[in-house]
């Protein structure tokens, strides 16, 4: 194609400036998906949007970080007062801090759910509300790519919000120790299960939230729906455990996403579950992992079907 170089002001046409043909690379579907993923991840944190869009994600992330900061501060204080060896387990006897890698999920689940309730509707509802979907689906993307980019973005954001506090705790304990290298070697296996817990949590919470949020362009409905999906099951579980006995009372615990995650967390860290209902159920650990996998798969199936059918 001939280069349509603009003829300088010969016609006085105001549009006679910009357009040129493009002969550079066209990077296709994977590049397109990645671009959507990156922009979605930025928008989860309100980056590139106005200041107001940043308030909810950053406040919730800061609150999630708070226990870690307390824990590190406590460690520092103890190490200065008693020396590290007498630290948390110190003179008063074996006091175990309630803030551990293994308990952090329990401490932050509510905040992570609120994070989803605030950001998942923004992530998918916006495109429906303003009918932007058609602009995506008429490009080098498949509908499934859109779903995966959005789930990936929210899951990544949740991993970040959850992992930063653990990283702070890790850095805190290692740096406070007298023998940094030795402490590092001690801490790595302790924190290791979080590398599995974090993505499982992110995909369960993120997947379910987006599945709910994708059903409506209305932000308020989506937020209410997400909260309902995480709040109602525990109430049902508690009631059933109260009135029923036997297998039903045990297996009903798998109806709650939060409970499933608590079970997965306890199994991977090799600890007693923090959630009373999960402790009462006393189900084998792998069962929770299986349940988490089913929840993730179900959320993805719902999302993929929703976006295959949605009118764009």
């Amino acid at each position: 194609m001939a280069d349509p170089a603009p003829t300088p002001a010969a016609t006085g046409n105001i549009y006679d400036l910009g357009y040129r043909s493009y002969d550079g690379p066209r990077l296709g579907r994977r590049h397109a998906s990645r671009a959507l993923y990156v922009s979605s991840l930025r928008s989860v944190f309100g980056i590139g949007r106005g200041g107001r869009a940043k308030v909810a994600p950053f406040v919730l992330a800061a609150l999630t970080l708070l226990p870690a900061l307390v824990s590190v501060g406590f460690d520092v204080l103890l190490s200065q007062t008693f020396g590290r060896e007498d630290g948390p387990g110190g003179p008063g006897g074996p006091i175990e801090s309630p803030i551990q890698y293994s308990t952090y999920l329990g401490l932050s689940t509510t905040l992570l759910i609120l994070f989803c309730a605030a950001q998942a509707p923004e992530l998918v509802g916006r495109d429906q509300r303003h009918r932007v979907l058609v602009l995506y689906f008429s490009r080098a993307l498949e509908r499934a790519d859109y779903v995966l980019a959005k789930v990936g973005a929210l899951a990544t954001a949740l991993v970040i919000v959850f992992a930063v506090p653990l990283a702070v705790m890790f850095a805190g304990s290692v740096l406070v120790a007298r023998d940094v290298a030795a402490e590092f070697i001690v801490q790595v296996p302790r924190v290791a299960p979080a590398f599995v817990v974090a993505p499982v949590m992110a995909l369960v919470l993120g997947g379910l939230s987006l599945a709910v949020a994708s059903m409506t362009p209305r932000r308020a409905y989506a937020t209410a729906g997400i909260i309902a999906v995480f709040i109602i099951p525990p109430i049902v579980i508690a009631t059933v455990q109260e009135v029923a006995r036997g297998d039903l009372a045990r297996y009903i615990v798998l109806a709650g996403a939060g409970q499933i995650l608590d079970g997965v967390n306890a199994f991977l860290f090799g600890r007693t579950p923090g959630d009373d209902m999960v402790r009462t159920a006393a189900l084998p650990g792998p069962l929770y992992v299986g349940a988490a996998a089913i929840v993730i798969a179900a959320a993805l199936v719902i999302l993929l079907r929703r976006y295959q059918r949605i009118d764009a």
Partner: peptide, 28 residues
């Protein structure tokens, strides 16, 4: 494709939207 209906999100600028969409068409 230029759709018939209004499809533009109100809270971003034309530059942001168009540059982002260019990438989802495969442009670096």
């Amino acid at each position: 494709y230029m759709p018939e209906h209004d499809v533009l999100p109100p809270d971003v600028s034309a530059t942001e939207l168009v540059a982002h969409l260019a990438q989802t068409s495969g442009l670096p």
